[in-house]
Amino acid sequence: MADLSKVGTEYPPIVWEVERGKIREFAKAIGDFNPIYLDREAAVKAGYKDTPAPPTFLTVPMMWCGKMPDFINDLKINFMMVLHGEEEYEYYREIYPGDVITGTPKVTKMEEKTSKSGSKMDMITLEVLYTNQKGEKVAKARSLLVERK
């Protein structure tokens, strides 16, 4: 059962260097062959500085940093009972190869809810604000985790 007193907890930053090959690999894995992700020249022609990161790319630093199990443990969430309920990204700037992205994860909301069928669950919102090496805000990710009880 999630420890609801942990709301407001901030975790150590996630730091991630963005590589051109990872952007291409991620786009291809989705089956998105938009040339702006695959070819620098096509991206420049379309008005980008370089091949930009696709809309859901910020899952890459989050998953590859390997910290999610630590957050889940710290929040006393039962890993076997947790579902990914929602995901939202707000975009402020493009993310390009060579950028060094720093994400600051924070637990912004924790609450118990009762479903229509009467079962109880804890809803945990984790927000990560990402900045680049110039200190510019690039995006915010918001994840809703649902722990069934």
Binding site: I30, G31, D32, N34, I36, A46, G47, Y48, P52, P54, P55, T56, E86, E87, E88, Y89, E90, Y91, E94, R142
Partner: peptide, 18 residues
């Protein structure tokens, strides 16, 4: 995300939530 950015150019996208 692919579907959305095949309608509107990626650099026009401000928010995507599901």
């Amino acid at each position: 995300g692919q579907a959305v950015t095949s309608w509107v150019p990626k650099n026009r996208l401000k928010r995507l939530g599901v």
